[in-house]
Design a binder for these strands. Structure first.
Lengths: 267, 267
DNA sequence: CATAAATAATCATTGTCAATCATTTATTTT
DNA sequence: AAAATAAATGATTGACAATGATTATTTATG
């Protein structure tokens, strides 16, 4: 076995598991400890892994250190004020006891806070939303089954036959990467797949998008504007965009970020 | 077991509950008290946890509302030593990469700590197990869909068509209320329903029961003894019970709570 | 103050590492 | 093609670090 091949195996093993020992790698590769150590030193110098006593560990930076696993650390914070106001307006649309669907996303995640004092039937494909509502509210929580995708923090099943089809709600709330004349746009095929399953499982499709989303463009069109019933956004929306939504017969709700009430406009 | 691997497990355990004792960590990791103390000192110096008398505590103060949302607060603690040892033996049966099913329960929950340093494909109907593994390990997590029942902390769907049927595993691990000549017994019809769905979705059915479960009686029989392939229990098991299991052709593994290795007996 | 638990300190044992050198394998030179 | 050279590998050894057991010391608790 040659150097490259061995190192490829070592990297594979170390990514497969947080830590691997020198002895384990010897068994896997059939090489001697001396060789494995030399490989580990080399790969460590290339920053492909971390060398530790007894073996190697994957390089994943702050796997544990900085309060691991908190939901979507980065996106979470941008336009946070608007997102909060929008999410609050969304929750205020609902009555206790109603069944709703919340699609995963950073804007929809903000709904958990106003939902904490409610008692609704919430169906979601977002693990963090379920986690938060379960621990901090009395809502009934229903979850879609499947694999948990860590990056997008959603649960996705490649199969047609999951519980999703058995849940029908008064409203479905979802975010989006962008919203324009072409319709609702997303940036990730995985998310499109998840959302396609849920669209159509409710009376009313409500889109939560801060006003910056009207500028965003993306190649993946999830559905045309005509399928959207309501859009909740902030007061940064332009008259032109409002007119476009009105033309598509979409109900528009503008959430005031600073103050209290939401106001219905147009239709 | 090596330093990093052990320390990952310790961090996993300390996130799970406000405080963990040195003795508990010994059982989970199989290391000596001296080593655990040295690890705690090191992790404390790295600010990964707080060292306290008797063990360690999570660095994030009282997470949220006191004890709220902590998994199954009461049952969690009874026979905890045996449960930990049994859970460790269960994880040691598995190889990385293997698909396994973990049915929700207080004993099976203890598997999360030894699993923290592994990378397996875990299918579960337990929200706390999924939550912990998602936040503190690199395992692939798959979840069954349905409603989250807060009391039992499991996810249950009344429908036949959920992803459960699409997952087939090498082993399925489950606890039980009781185990006797009549078979596996449970105390709650809801749990029976959940478990019935999962039984048969694996090559090998492994039962995790501490020895007190052999005395327990219940009215709900989940399945006959013949369907069980392996039982893992502690050294409190009587010869008579061991003989009963042997007669039913069940493989028996006795996990030593104090020391290191598990030993297979009979069969 | 007495007792038990937890911790610290010590030491023998084991496991891991770096350095060295012999051997094999690959590459270049003749 | 053969010989010479270079590189990679595996084995050996002494140094060092980690571990577990033992014993002494400290700390909590009644």
């Amino acid at each position: 076995m040659h150097e490259r091949e061995r190192q490829r195996i070592i990297l594979s093993a170390v990514q497969d598991r947080p830590v691997v020992t020198v002895v384990e790698l010897c068994i896997i590769t059939g090489a001697s400890e001396a060789t494995i150590r030399r490989d580990i030193v080399a790969l460590d110098a290339e920053k492909k892994l971390n060398r530790i006593r007894g073996g190697a560990e994957s390089i994943t930076p702050p796997q544990f250190g900085g309060l691991a696993g908190r939901p979507f650390s980065v996106n979470q914070l941008i336009n946070i004020e608007q997102k909060r106001a929008i999410a609050r307006a969304a929750v205020e649309m609902c009555d206790d006891g109603e069944p709703i669907i919340i699609n995963g996303g950073t804007t929809t995640f903000q709904m958990v806070h106003p939902l904490a004092s409610r008692r609704m039937q919430v169906f979601t494909n977002s693990f963090p939303i379920a986690e938060h509502l379960l621990n901090h509210s009395k809502n009934t929580i229903m979850l879609s089954g499947g694999t948990i995708y860590r990056e997008q923090n959603i649960i996705l099943s490649p199969f047609e036959n999951d519980v999703t089809r058995n849940f029908y709600a008064r409203r479905m709330f979802m975010g989006a990467k962008g919203l324009g004349p072409l319709g609702v746009m997303e940036g990730d095929p995985l998310i499109v797949q998840a959302e396609e399953k849920l669209i159509g499982q409710s009376d009313e499709l409500v889109l939560l998008v801060d006003s910056s989303k009207f500028e965003a463009r993306s190649s993946l069109v999830l559905c045309p504007l005509s399928r959207v019933d309501t859009v909740i956004t902030d007061d940064g929306i332009t008259d032109k965009t409002a007119a476009m939504l009105e033309a598509a017969d979409v109900k528009l709700i503008v959430a005031k970020s600073g103050a209290a009430q939401q106001e219905g406009l147009a239709s």
